[in-house]
Design a protein around this nucleic acid. Structure first.
Lengths: 391, 391
DNA sequence: GTGAGTTAAGCAACACTGTTGGCAAAGTGC
DNA sequence: GCACTTTGCCAACAGTGTTGCTTAACTCAC
């Protein structure tokens, strides 16, 4: 979509081209991600004569609704820029065999960052969406002044970028962090309740500190950790996903109609602060009986079963309100006892929906595991940078 | 946006033109709606020499980002088709005065229907979004077999269309109805728990029964009553709105990022069935302590104050989860004691948000009053029909 | 009054998009 | 070996918004 639907904007020929180009690239990236995770799409029958895997031009034409000739022009541009390559041929279907196209993973990279209190994660992702390198950083939001933390982070990003194989461009950096913060401006408010960060323009600062060899200024994006984590699992088609994160707190990332839903002030997803027992225990936020308070109280009493049931009840409320069809679980409390949470959430949903068979909900752990926030942050940067053309 | 972002579709020149044309028309329609409600936009200084109100070409160019010349071409097409007219001139700003353009209200109409149990409402809306005619129908979902109800409804639509002044085209019909139902296919499931309607393809049937004089087949749309009601109040700019409806039940219509959010199975908005007191009274849905059950119990005990506080608590949960900035209230229980609900909702939100000053939420009654469902249904049809070109 | 300056809107030529029609390449199948 | 199918590109084309220039219409200073 790109600039196509930003506000109420008219479009011209350049926008039209960018839209279609981004669309083709997105399809090829999705295919690469699918084959990497071993899912394999309809073109999986290509394992015959050709060596590579990928999508053919005709297939792209069918998927986009564009004419084969338009696809040829678009892919010719992408081949010229080096973003995609011809990887082989598919088996013939009665005529000339299809030439397979695939993304060239080394053509572009993004960096994903999970910026937590005292411990952060940073990783490099290639154009195909694969992790290339990963590091743990022993500092975070609470390790020093914003200036020092930002400088340290920029340095590590710089170092990581230098290791990128193939000399590909670095398109951007995504940073997942606790809220509240402002996604539009890249300004933090009081992440994790730390007042020292209030108003700190992290994105602008990082952009200024980065000195990348690759021409155009990279996209630096800041988003809530739960939002980036929701992006870590590529959506298998249309639908609506909620990522529920239970760690020191309880939050959610909502992927509605294919896009992260952030609300008016990037503050959507405060799933843990829905009051669910008006006379319940006092929460850190001041209210009584927040879902988060109930879960944490149960965990403090070493009773993950009860915490899981509360989480499940909250999930059921969420499904009824938003008609979600896919729930992902993450956060270290979840990973400590995955089965407990998975079954409790599924049970509660089945119990509270009037027609669970009709309104099916898949519940699973986030496939990205403990790195979900950083992986999703890298993917956010990748998606954002590629919706606009790569110049 | 139109077909621009429908699924993963590529676009061509025709799509580009339609996109921009629809955009211009939308801006002119919004201006008409704003002046009609007495708000008046920036071009309100046009009351001087010229007689009419509207937007100028240069203003449209600025708002769309298109060049003035492109706007001239687009408006020339719209003038040709009769959808817009030149209404006068604005005061000069130092040079040639701007020519004002406005939608021609009689150029097109839609019909909006609220289909309830035993009583329905039907109205005619013009291109400017104004109600032209309104009727109460003394039948509804529970009045007979689906076939008879559909036939009766089609007949009334037909009658109403004949009264449309100016010979404008009828672009479509919108029907607001209780869920569950399927917006995509226009099929009802069990509205208001009536099993006889399960699987009835209301949209297709109405489309077949209608014999409109105006060429192309009209759009017939079916949506949840709470969704159409949420559309009844035109959004004043970007933001996220929740319409809360308290009548025989409690539901919500969510307008997120400018569009109705329906969820995977058109079942989003079951706001009343969030469990908020796990040991509370049994709800009609089978769960205990649903918000709806709590509200209805309070109302049964003739205690609207308590019902309002429950509603407010639910609203606060909603704001925290979705970062809503505008809440509209409607439904006959609300209209019975508006002040009670308005103040209680505002209070509860202020009490449960950590920073109510930063996260401002406007709470008001739906301006469309008791006709909100039908008005929004007509607007849904209008918006849908005009996103695609009017041929 | 009168001429200079400013703003709005249209005409014509233009660059560029995806589309269409035709054709060469590269397979299958009888 | 030949007919057929399918892929993919070249060239011409229709039609979009853009650009450069001209005309219309009004304000303002003198």
């Amino acid at each position: 979509m790109g600039r196509m639907d930003r506000r109420q904007a008219g479009t011209n020929l350049a926008g039209l081209r960018d839209h279609n180009t981004a669309l083709v690239l997105r399809l090829l990236r999705a295919a690469a991600a699918a084959t990497a995770t071993g899912e394999g799409d309809e073109s999986g029958d290509a394992a015959g004569s050709g060596l590579g895997t990928g999508s053919s031009r005709v297939q792209l034409a069918a998927e986009t609704g564009l004419t084969p000739q338009a696809i040829s022009k678009i892919t010719a541009r992408l081949l010229d820029e080096g973003l995609i390559v011809e990887t082989g041929r598919a088996e013939s279907t009665g005529g000339k065999p299809r030439t397979l196209l695939a993304v060239r993973p080394e053509a572009a990279y993004t960096v994903g960052v999970e910026l937590d209190r005292r411990h952060s994660t940073i990783l490099l992702m290639d154009l195909a969406g694969q992790r290339r390198r990963r590091e743990s950083l022993m500092f975070g939001l609470a390790s020093g002044t914003p200036e020092r933390v930002a400088a340290g982070l920029a340095e590590r990003v710089q170092d990581l970028v230098r290791t990128a194989p193939g000399g590909g461009r670095v398109l951007g950096v995504g940073i997942g962090c606790r809220g509240p913060l402002d996604y539009e401006t890249g300004v933090l408010h009081r992440p994790a309740g730390l007042p020292g960060w209030d108003g700190y323009p992290l994105c602008d600062v990082i952009t200024g500190l980065l000195d990348l060899p690759t021409a155009a200024s990279p996209t630096v994006l800041l988003d809530k950790d739960t939002n980036t984590a929701a992006l870590a699992a590529p959506a298998p088609g249309p639908g609506n996903t909620a990522y529920l994160h239970l760690a020191d707190g309880l939050g959610a990332g909502l992927q509605l109609n294919g896009a992260i839903y952030r609300g008016t002030r990037t503050n959507a997803g405060e799933f843990g602060h829905q009051v669910i027992q008006p006379d319940g225990p006092v929460c850190t936020c001041g209210s009584r009986g927040c879902l988060e308070a109930l879960c944490l109280a149960a965990l403090a009493a070493d009773d993950p079963g009860t915490a899981a049931r509360w989480l499940g009840l909250g999930a059921a409320n969420l499904v009824r309100l938003l008609d979600i069809d896919r729930i992902l679980l993450g956060g270290h409390q979840i990973f400590a006892a995955p089965e407990v949470y998975l079954s409790a959430v599924a049970e509660q949903i089945a119990e509270h929906l009037p027609d669970p068979a009709w309104q099916e909900v898949r519940v699973s752990l986030t496939p990205a595991g403990a790195d979900a926030v950083a992986v999703g942050a890298a993917r956010l940067a990748l998606d954002t940078a590629l919706d606009a053309p790569v110049s």
